[in-house]
Amino acid sequence: MQQAHLFEYENYREFVRDYIKTLPRSGHGQFRQLADVLRTTTVTISQIFSGKLNLSTDQALELCLHFGFKDIEIKYFVSLVQMNNSSHYRAKAFFKAELESIRKETENIEKVIPKAKRIDEKVAIQFYSDWIYSAVRLLTSIEKHQTLNGISEYLKLPKPRIREILDFLIENGLVVEDQKGNLQHNVASTHLPASSPWVKARQISWRIKATEFMDSKQYPENIFYTGPCSIDRKNFDGFRKELIRLIEKFVKLAEASTPTDLACLNIDWFFLR
């Protein structure tokens, strides 16, 4: 979702109305589609979202599936419907607490990143020790660089070094190579949990790589920004949520791309205490 952020809502009717406006043609015809999906009439749909009738739990689930919501979004929306439909204050309080718990889940970056291949611990030690391993693996997803020569030329590194890295990636199932020497990445993405001892090494490796480009005038579109500041907790948390949304959008854009180049996003947002 790009404009109507579900987890900010405490009224499902307001969310659905706002969400529909973000759809093509401003959501024209969506009430008719919802009526078909929920096996009811457009009059009933209008009454539900005007507040005269309630959406049932079954209908809430069908609506989520129709809009293609993710699991955590479905969980939140159904709980939102149950809270709005509850008449007793204890029930409302119960579902309100459930919604808050789900919101906390969404503040975990790992929740917005699709499931990816978990690399064996022994392999991770080497793979995450240097940016070059990820770079070579990613280059095998770009058609014009899917050979030893292509990768060597792109990274401006000697072929023996690239061959060594490729052998490691192939041996551990991260890249495949055919008899003609054509390369292809074997997994769309890799995953390193926040609890891994190799997280710091990976982040440092890519940040050091970023410093190599800071003085370069070759790519004026590159962005390097550092902004120390004094800030209150409310705005710190609010901006953190915006960053998580940005990361989610970034992941989706990268997945949907037909790649032609390598790029790297490094983000830090932390308290100095």
Rank of each mutant, 00 (worst) to 15 (best):
M1K: 13
Q3W: 00
Q3F: 04
A4R: 00
E10H: 09
F15I: 11
I20F: 02
L23H: 06
L23P: 06
S26M: 05
G27C: 00
Q33S: 11
A35F: 01
A35M: 03
L38P: 04
T44Q: 07
I45L: 04
S46F: 01
K52R: 14
K52Y: 02
N54H: 08
D58K: 13
Q59E: 08
L61M: 12
L63Q: 04
C64Y: 04
F67H: 06
F69T: 00
D71G: 00
I72S: 06
E73L: 09
I74W: 00
V81E: 00
V81C: 06
Q82D: 03
M83V: 12
N85K: 13
S86T: 07
Y89A: 12
A91E: 12
A93F: 04
A93I: 02
A97M: 08
E100D: 12
I102K: 06
I102P: 02
R103Q: 15
K104N: 07
K104F: 04
N108M: 02
N108H: 04
I113E: 01
I113D: 00
I113R: 01
K115L: 10
K115S: 15
A124Q: 11
Q126S: 11
Y128K: 11
Y128C: 11
W131E: 03
Y133W: 06
V136K: 09
V136N: 05
H145N: 13
H145Q: 10
T147M: 09
E153P: 01
E153V: 15
Y154I: 05
K156R: 09
K156L: 09
K156M: 10
E164F: 01
I165M: 02
L169R: 06
D178Y: 09
D178W: 07
Q179T: 15
A194E: 14
S195Q: 08
P197I: 08
R202M: 12
Q203I: 04
R207D: 06
A210N: 05
E212L: 08
F213K: 11
D215G: 14
S216D: 13
P220E: 04
I223E: 10
F224E: 07
T226F: 07
I231Y: 01
I231D: 07
R233E: 06
N235R: 10
F239H: 12
R240S: 12
R240V: 00
K241D: 07
R245I: 04
K249S: 13
F250V: 13
V251T: 12
V251P: 00
K252Q: 15
E255T: 08
S257Q: 09
P259Q: 07
T260A: 13
C264Q: 12
N266A: 11
N266R: 09
D268C: 12
W269D: 00
W269M: 02
